[in-house]
Design a protein around this nucleic acid. Structure first.
Length: 783
DNA sequence: TTCTCGCTATTTTTT
DNA sequence: ATAGCGAGAA
């Protein structure tokens, strides 16, 4: 039945897998759908399958592609794989949809009609770029709210639609499409792409270039997709380009997903892709992973019972061998303050009982709910960490620094230009910038290129700014990434600004952290990859996640461009700092994929959870229910649910009814801590509240800053990993002439790295200074 | 150019 | 309640 040999079936990798997991891991090389329930060992199955395929010689490292949604999941997969495999896995095509698209577009930048050093706009860059378009078109920003226009454009792209494809039936939509078209032109002019564009552009490239498409179809024998229920229309279409249905070419597309955990439909995710996949790929057998290794029985019973109320399901019931465990505790609190106070007591008790604080999670439906809980935790001195705040690369000071760095690479990046042209202030005001933008618009050139057209004092200040950029660019030639950033921070005046700013200390720290991040990035990317033993041409295509060589010439991005890309693609981890034991606070959405010993689901009130805005349609309620399902299944041992009779929301007291989800849970699994149906204002509740209000200094503390903000930390790089910089490599010498088949003669400036990762910086004069991967580029020394 | 006042919106958001 | 933003004043 299975073409794999007996020996392969007895690989030590396959030990301790249950029958379903084993079936998934060793599934025949054909399309397969794995329905993986929460806590069923999904990641283990994915990584074990990849390791097993490689170990049994069914595929080479270059023939595998594994796609995830989050950087975290991708990292997790790489980490686990590297412990299972004897070689370095970093060169393999394992990453997020967007990360892999980036890698692909860097290798085929010419076909994609992009500059090789194209930069990626994050969500806020995108919004400000759209805002500029709307202003340039003299449109009303009330009627065309930049953020909403952004959603519209992203929505079009995720549906695979260019401006010409959109069916605009009304005036408003026609205008939106016009904005979309202008925004596209602007991005193209500036050499930038947004997140959705990364996907759409690579999809179109594959669609329109049969040779490239066939090449990749032949290359990737095994494609594995994680969280398939969250894919949107475009992502599914993108996957089909790599592995078309019904091709019968022996490719294996393995989709892993859980329809019950689909909670991103509101963002364009199509659960229906799972059913479509099953049909279009004629999937013979759907493997269900229903054995749960995470939670006790009462918790699973509750999850199963709740989710069974949904109508549109592929069908799946979790089971465990772990026994029933503790019942689910339910608390009714008179107010949100009292709920928070109850949480404190519970958390203290759990902690006294020996539970680490980081094993305790407090979940809520919307971010606004975290405030009360935070101040209560703050008051009682319990360390906590809130997820979902500003991430490292999104901080203003870091974005400013990155904008300067981007301008060094591409001065035509108007988004970056506008961000820092007057920061720190240089006497360039709104009026001057308006004139500049008019001049740029008239000639179709970038702001940087139009500076000469502005007269007077503003013009002189603008020239001073471009001179600053130009001279910094010259000054930093040949510098290491660290030196470049240090130089930019100094000459831009950012350091001076924050040094004199009264609360600039934290910002200076973050800028320092930026240098560390860059240093860590260089170390991580620049050392010892592709010990994988990929053939040279596959290295060219796979490259390294950080710096991808051109598929033809071997030219790679400079470390600076690679770092800037890294910064946009990975906004920085919200991951907890190691060694700090703190209670975890987050929305249910951001808890997906995580697990804790003890979980508190708070604010279970009608209108809040399920949220009123989601209940306009039937699907909305089902998605809320799936969200509740995700929340419940995060808990390993202890689960508590709570709701409040009253809650302060938008400055007003709301009187609540408990969530309908309570009626959908098995009564036998619940333990009510408060008498049922207790009215508001009953003796107990009133007393509790009064005691609470007397005893707490909370009123003064509300609005106090958040403690222990999640910080972004790069793993420390051991000194032994220091990158090799040499003067010689295979007959090439720094300072001597070299010849490249495409770029002609040049002078060798720098040599870095070793082995297949060796790279060279060469000044080709007319063609400029370029970084080349020596494993790909054909460089010969000239005497 | 920068500061301050007042208006508005406030579900979730992996990239 | 409150953060974020835009318009007018200093």
């Amino acid at each position: 039945m299975n073409p794999v040999s007996d020996a392969a079936q007895h690989s030590p990798l396959l030990k301790n897998l249950n029958p379903e997991q084993l079936a998934a891991v060793t599934a025949a090389p054909e399309p397969a759908l794995i329905l993986a329930g929460a806590g069923s060992g999904k990641t283990r199955v994915l990584t074990t399958r990849i390791a097993w395929l490689l170990q049994t010689g069914q595929v080479s490292p270059g023939g595998v592609m594994a796609v995830t949604f989050t950087n975290k999941a991708a990292k997790e997969m790489l980490t686990r794989l590297s412990t299972m495999l004897p070689f370095n896995v970093r060169g393999m095509w394992i990453g997020t949809f967007h990360g892999l698209c980036n890698r692909f577009l860097r290798a085929h930048w010419k076909l994609a009609h992009l500059p090789q050093a194209f930069q990626i706009l994050d969500a806020s860059d995108t919004t400000s770029a759209i805002k500029r378009v709307i202003r340039a078109m003299n449109l009303d920003e009330e009627r065309f709210v930049p953020k909403q226009v952004g959603w519209f454009i992203a929505g079009c792209k995720e549906d695979g639609q260019r401006p010409g494809d959109v069916d605009a039936r009304d005036e408003q939509t026609r205008k939106l499409v016009e904005i979309y078209a202008n925004y596209e032109d602007q991005c193209q002019r500036e050499g930038v792409v947004d997140f959705a564009e990364l996907m759409l552009r690579s999809y179109e490239l594959l669609r329109d270039n049969p040779a490239v498409r066939e090449h990749y179809q032949n290359r990737f024998r095994h494609i594995l997709v994680d969280e398939f229920q969250d894919t949107n229309k475009l992502q599914y279409a993108w996957l089909k380009m790599f592995a078309p249905p019904g091709a019968g070419n022996g490719q294996s597309l393995l989709a892993v997903g859980d329809d019950d955990q689909s909670i991103y439909a509101f963002r364009g995710a199509r659960v229906g892709n799972m059913a479509d996949f099953e049909r279009e790929y004629r999937v013979k057998r759907v493997i269900k992973l229903e054995q749960n290794y995470r939670s006790f029985g009462h918790i699973l019973d509750a999850a199963n019972e709740l989710i069974s109320r949904n109508s549109q399901r592929l069908g799946k019931t979790l089971r465990t061998d772990a026994g029933l465990g503790d019942p689910i505790r339910v608390q009714e609190a008179p107010s949100d303050f009292a709920e928070a106070q109850w949480l404190i007591e519970e958390i203290q008790q759990l902690h006294r009982g020996g539970l680490d604080r980081q094993e305790i999670a407090v979940l809520y439906r919307s971010n606004a709910q975290s405030r009360v809980i935070e101040s209560a935790l703050f008051n009682s001195g319990i360390p906590y960490r809130v997820y979902g705040g500003l991430r490292f690369f999104e901080r203003a000071e870091v974005k400013h620094a990155l904008a300067y760095l981007r301008l060094l690479e591409n001065a035509n990046d108007d988004t970056s230009f506008l961000r820092v042209v007057n920061f720190p202030t240089r006497g360039i005001g709104a009026k001057t910038l308006e004139n500049l933008q008019d001049a740029a618009k008239a000639t179709g050139r970038s702001l940087y290129q139009s500076v000469g057209a502005i007269q007077g004092k503003g013009g002189a200040n603008l020239v001073a700014f471009t001179n600053l950029i130009d001279s910094t660019r010259n000054l930093t030639q040949g510098m290491t990434l660290r030196e470049i950033i240090e130089q930019v921070l100094e000459t831009s005046g950012l350091l001076d600004f924050y040094r004199t700013d009264k609360d600039g200390a934290e910002r200076l720290e973050n800028l320092d952290e930026l240098i560390n991040a860059a240093e860590a990035f260089v170390m991580q990317e620049g050392f010892g990859k592709n010990a994988v033993g990929l053939p040279v041409d596959e290295v060219a295509e796979a490259g390294t996640p950080g710096a991808v060589p051109d598929a033809e010439t071997g030219e790679i991005m400079s470390p600076l461009v690679a770092f800037l890309t890294h910064a946009s693609l990975e906004a920085g981890d919200n991951q907890a700092q190691a060694g700090q034991d703190a209670v975890q606070l987050m929305t249910v959405h951001s808890a997906k994929g995580l697990e804790f010993d003890a979980v508190f689901i708070t604010g279970l009130e009608e209108g809040l959870f399920p949220h009123e805005n989601a209940m306009s349609d039937h699907d909305g309620l089902e998605e809320e229910r799936r969200l509740m399902y995700v929340a419940i299944t995060r808990a390993r041992k202890k689960l508590s649910l709570s709701f409040c009779q009253t809650r302060m929301l938008h400055g007003q007291t709301r009187y609540n009814v408990k969530s309908r989800f309570f009626d959908e849970l098995p009564e036998g699994a619940l333990k009510w801590l408060t008498p049922r149906n207790q009215g508001f204002g009953s003796g107990f509740a009133r007393e509790y509240q009064q005691a609470w209000e007397r005893g707490s200094g909370l009123k003064g503390m509300v609005g106090a800053g958040r403690v222990e903000r999640a910080a972004w930390v790069e793993p420390p790089v051991p000194a032994s990993m220091k990158q090799k910089v040499s003067n010689e490599h295979g007959g090439l010498r720094v300072g001597k002439g070299v010849f490249h088949t495409k770029f002609g003669e040049g002078v060798l400036l720098t040599l870095e790295g070793s082995g297949t990762d060796a790279r060279a910086q060469v000044n080709f004069g007319r063609h400029g200074t370029k970084w080349l991967a020596l494993s790909v580029a054909k460089l010969t020394p000239i005497d």
